[in-house]
């Protein structure tokens, strides 16, 4: 298992924690702690998967996701929302802006690993149904 994963969270400690978990499965991890930096980096070099926080200063995760869905090179990029916002309506918003999966913080390492493995394995064939 390998590939590059991009993690965005305004808390750098969270980026590191996620990176530490995902490196167990051999993923290479890049990160950013704000939406604008993430947008630039992801458009320059799309990863196999984007792990995205919602509440960030400046560009929010939802905005970032909507912008990426309009760009041809990131239209089908799997995007996993990893966020403290676990309300039903937040999950529905995640779906409306084009997210692929949603996991609520605090999360269990095993669950994150399982979802990331599934998303990176099936990411290529996901499209509009």
């Amino acid at each position: 298992m390998s590939g590059r994963i991009f993690v965005v969270d305004d808390d750098p400690a969270m980026v590191e924690a996620v990176a530490a978990v995902l490196s167990l499965d051999g993923f290479e991890v890049d990160g950013a702690s704000d939406g604008a930096a993430a947008l630039r980096a992801v458009l320059n070099d799309p990863p196999a998967l984007l792990v995205l926080d919602v509440s960030m200063p400046g560009l929010t995760g939802w905005e970032l996701c909507e912008i990426l869905r309009r760009q041809p090179i990131t239209r089908d990029l799997p995007i996993l929302f990893l966020t403290g916002r676990g309300e039903l309506r937040d999950r529905i918003t995640a779906m409306q802006v084009g997210g692929t999966d949603h996991l609520t913080k605090p999360f269990r390492a095993e669950e994150l690993r399982a979802r990331v493995r599934a998303l990176t394995a099936s990411g290529a064939r996901r499209g509009e149904s």
């Binding site: 990176a19 530490a20 991890v29 630039r40 912008i67």
Partner: peptide, 26 residues
């Protein structure tokens, strides 16, 4: 860096450049 996060490369924490491009996308 955490012990397991050797592969982590954190992109600049605040992006100093390309603001017009991001504004355009927005």
């Amino acid at each position: 860096k955490g012990p397991r996060a050797d592969s982590l490369k954190l992109v600049a924490e605040r992006s100093p450049v390309d603001v017009p491009e991001i504004e355009r996308l927005r």
